[in-house]
């Protein structure tokens, strides 16, 4: 029985990227709209790691921000444990906010440079009135620091005294402080060196096992995603083109874009596998191609693909939004 924690339906986000009103009137330009996320539906099951992969402009970070409420959605619906995230009243929202958290990409920007680490980690505790006294809060902060592999004494320092990996640990401790069930991880290791990335990825897996966390893991790096995710969604220009179980996606990719991404991964095992160079570049999202947005780069595109937009076809293995894809 699958147990859905987060259910996203037909999520859409449009950004207004046009010039200010006065300039538009003077230069006689139309309003410019950017469809950053276009009708994305997905479900994240309790206890799993669901990964969203995509290149720049794919809308992966926009989806993450909408799920945690940092951005409003233009259309669509997000249910968190059966509760509609866009409808709740004050008290309900407050209770909900405790249950999800986010880890950000840049550990140098995600910690307030003027605050000591103690204060940074304790902020959610304070906000949600989670500990009865100042000393209880302090004790909890020390526990959290040790949980993420730091020393309890590190709390009195400022963020600039730490390396990137240590800062990311602090950010994780802050995310954990309100005892959330669900954590959105937005490229948590892409700003880190590889040897440190391994530490952080291992830590995140350990914490998941220990605390029963559910992750939404956003990344552009397929190898990292392969390592972390139970299920993977592939985004291209704001659309979800394929969703599949982690192993299955790598063994048997169905969407031509997924295939292209997989082929472009460098051959680090030195197996002599020929690395295929992808064709073309991501089109400008303000003016996307007609029909299936991938058709200009797609090796198997037909005339039909240029006109019609493929919808997701569901099957046992997952879903794929392509007219020509095989392997169901």
């Amino acid at each position: 029985m699958k147990d859905t924690l987060v259910n996203v339906e037909n999520l859409t986000r449009i950004f207004d990227v046009s010039k200010p009103w006065l300039n538009r009137v003077i230069e006689r330009e139309e309003k410019k709209l950017l469809l950053a996320v276009n009708g994305v539906s997905l479900e994240i099951r309790r206890g799993e790691t669901f990964a969203l992969v995509g290149e720049s402009g794919s809308g992966k970070s926009t989806i993450a921000k909408m799920i945690v409420g940092l951005l409003s959605a233009s259309q669509g619906k997000i249910d968190f444990d059966g509760i509609d995230l866009f409808q709740p009243g004050g008290a309900e929202m407050r209770a909900l906010r405790q249950r999800y958290q986010m880890i950000f990409q840049d550990p140098f920007a995600s910690l307030n440079p003027r605050w000591r680490v103690n204060k940074i980690i304790a902020e959610p505790l304070r906000k949600f009135d989670m500990e009865s006294s100042e000393s209880a809060r302090h004790k909890r902060v020390e526990e959290l620091l040790e949980l993420v592999g730091m020393s309890a004494k590190d709390g009195v320092k400022f963020p600039h005294e730490f390396s990137g990996g240590q800062r990311q640990r602090i950010a994780i401790a802050r995310a954990l402080s309100s005892n959330p069930e669900f954590i959105v991880c937005d490229e948590p290791t892409s700003a880190l060196d590889v040897s440190v990335q391994a530490q952080i990825l291992n830590l995140m897996r350990d914490l998941q096992d220990e605390l029963g966390l559910t992750y939404l893991f956003i990344s552009h790096d397929l190898s990292v995603v392969r390592h972390m995710a139970n299920r993977i969604g592939v985004l291209y220009l704001g659309r979800l083109v394929e969703v599949a179980d982690g192993k299955e996606l790598f063994r048997n990719p169905r969407h031509p874009y997924t295939k292209m991404l997989l082929n472009a991964i460098p051959d680090l095992d030195m197996t002599g596998r020929e690395v295929a160079r992808p064709d073309g570049e991501i089109p400008n999202p303000i003016n996307p191609p007609s029909g299936c947005t991938f058709h200009p780069r797609c090796p198997i595109a037909t005339e039909y693909c240029k006109r019609e937009i493929p919808s997701a076809r569901n099957s046992e293995a997952g879903s794929v939004a392509c007219f020509e894809a095989t392997g169901d």
């Binding site: 060196d193 590889v194 040897s195 990335q197 391994a198 990825l201 291992n202 390592h227 991964i265």
Partner: peptide, 23 residues
Amino acid sequence: GLMGSIPTITQEGDRLTQIPGSM
């Protein structure tokens, strides 16, 4: 350690080799 810490698409197993600490 560096090579072990890079996740690859063919690798099985849960944990990456990690080098403790930082440079």
